[in-house]
Design a protein around this nucleic acid. Structure first.
Lengths: 359, 359
DNA sequence: ATTAGCACTATCAGCTGATGAGTGCTAATA
DNA sequence: TATTAGCACTCATCAGCTGATAGTGCTAAT
């Protein structure tokens, strides 16, 4: 027991000087993208330590698992553990420059964005551009969206178009097949019934309730209700799969920063499996703020050379989705973190405005 | 005058033997992706010609502009002109294997494809996969689509959702703002008016006619008509920009076949400018069949190391859009051409079925 | 505890010569 | 006269060697 405590303490008690060296190495590697050696560090640190001393400290840090070498006579590079230390203990998110803030705000407020989809796409592209990384955004889960309006449009004797509008301005369409020929008048009755019944409820609840009704009212014979339930069931199955927007994939190949990534191919391939990436993006349920996954902290193997920085966005009530970037582990956390954070906030704000603009 | 004729004849009259050599070089380069030299060609041709003779012929072909060398002591590779000759004079499109035909048919007939969008995306992906190139598809020009149904849905006192369904199953949404608060009942009247008026007409015509009505009926005061025209005008402005689907971009980077392409970067960048690529894809108006642009025949500079093979797809009445692949100039024309051709045909067929399934 | 000094090591750029595939030209040949 | 064998030449590639560079670890001196 006391041993554990001691080990924990030993882990915790990296003395001030050692910390400064570690920090120096991390920041050096972040800026130069080259392994950093004792000599250059001795100079840049300006702590009056000779390279030899630095070497001793480095050696200790290596033992503790903070540093590693690509080969014997190369400088050292930080491990994932080091970045974790850096992010947790050292990084104090920079304030964004006014200029950058403006740029983000303007980009999200461009005209012609009455559809949420457009907003998400352009925000994703913006963030990919700003960071020069790959940017991923998951669209609001239709599941948790609030119904604003549902409408049925008769296309033919066998086909009905469902139009579903959510509070935050998403519009979903689905063509459903029917065996029975239903008149437009009847469909109107059904839709106004559903609109009355379920106005301002979220789709998940609605679905739930419809399923319950199906059991409950089985015996009761009421054509309207029966059809409403049947159509409603089909209609609310709309778009189970939430969408994923990816931008900046070419940065993986062409950006200098990704150069010492051994398998950009693997990542590219991973992006083809959208559902997998979706899970990754939406998996963690942490109420608020930025989340950071460094290297091996990522569950997906092909992501384990990268860091993912993500944040959730929401309207006034609910978390809607996630926006995040994937970059090299030695990304410039000091600026990437606040950029992602700020962008997510602005996105939330814009969407909130949109959804509150209805009566 | 006679001189011109002579030159033309000289161009045309490449004797049989020379043609066979040229063909051998082209096919050799297509299969090996390596410059082909006189010795190996002498063997593979089996025409009983010594390398030296082949060299003489090659030298002639070089003079005529069919061959070039990357450097003095390298084998020769075909020029764009050679590929053009090959495509025009030599290639007789292979019959596709039954197996491949089936694969294409099945892929396009997968379930859950009631939206044209899904069909186009999956077809694009299919073709990218089959060819291992980049595949581009332009969605049907809404312009020329035939109206099946238009509907207005009141979202709030200032917002109206327009839903527009075309004959071939495309659904477009647009939220438009109004100053006047219009009841749903009124909107229903307007939409059934428009549906009656414009049923089975194409959107371009409709737009035209609405504009005419605006002039014509200016003085006539009829609330219904006036609003119908006003809303109609806004509604039919929907989605002027046709969409472009791109799949298989990663092949540019990772496929062996693209390896001696000097600027895949340039191409990647070009794909970001969707409107430019759209123009390229939809530009040429040739009634039917496959179109091939080899190297410098492409207007876009970053495409001039590539060949684009494209075909238009259509429903029973109209050309809807274009599907095509972009690959290296030394692609295997014998199979790529029929694959693109067949895919476009199947696509046309599938879309035609869809749009004829309404009453 | 720190540091200077030294031996050691891996990488990299640059040079070398050998190899091989390919050409063009010329003179001999059928 | 068309074809071909022979030869000199060119260029790219590759393995092997070089010295320079930038690191390290260890040890002994401060």
């Amino acid at each position: 027991m006391s041993k554990t405590v001691q080990r924990l303490e030993a882990k915790e008690s990296i003395d001030e000087r050692t910390q400064r060296v570690l920090r120096g190495i991390i920041e050096g590697y972040i800026t130069s993208n080259e392994p950093v050696g004792s000599r250059s560090l001795s100079k840049s640190l300006e702590m009056g330590l000779s390279p030899a001393t630095i070497r001793n400290i480095m050696s200790d840090l290596s033992d503790m698992g903070f540093l590693m070498q690509l080969h014997t006579s190369a400088g050292r590079i930080p491990t994932d553990k080091a970045y974790r230390f850096y992010v947790d203990q050292v990084v104090v998110a920079n304030q964004l420059t006014r200029k950058l803030q403006k740029r983000i705000q303007e980009a999200t407020q461009e005209g012609g964005m009455n559809q949420v989809e457009d907003l998400l796409i352009s925000t994703t592209r913006l963030l990919a551009g700003l960071t020069q990384f790959v940017c991923l955004t998951s669209s609001p889960r239709v599941e948790t969206s609030i119904l604003r309006r549902i409408e049925f449009i008769r296309l033919s004797s066998q086909q009905i178009l469902v139009v579903l509008v959510t509070r935050n301005g998403q519009v979903r369409n689905k063509i459903i097949a029917t065996t029975e020929d239903l008149s437009q008048d009847f469909l109107n009755t059904v839709s106004s019934f559903l609109n009355d019944q379920f106005h301002n409820r979220n789709l998940h609840e609605i679905r739930q309730q419809i399923l319950e009704s199906m059991v409950e009212d089985k015996e009761r014979y009421d054509r309207l209700l029966a059809q409403a339930v049947r159509l409603g069931k089909k209609a609310f199955e709309v778009a189970d799969a939430p969408e994923l927007y990816i931008e900046g994939q070419h940065n993986l190949i062409f950006s200098e920063r990704f150069r010492n990534l051994n398998s950009s191919r693997g990542l590219m391939d991973a992006f083809e499996h959208k559902s997998m990436i979706m899970n990754l993006l939406d998996s963690t349920v942490k109420a608020d703020g930025i989340q950071i996954f460094i290297g091996i902290e990522n569950e997906l193997e092909s992501l384990q050379d990268c860091t993912m920085v993500k944040a959730q966005y929401s309207d006034q009530n609910n978390v809607l989705g996630t926006i995040g970037v994937i970059g090299p582990t030695n990304m410039d956390y000091q600026t990437v973190i606040p950029v992602v954070d700020f962008t997510a906030r602005i996105l939330s704000q814009t969407i909130t405005q949109q959804s509150s603009s209805c009566d």
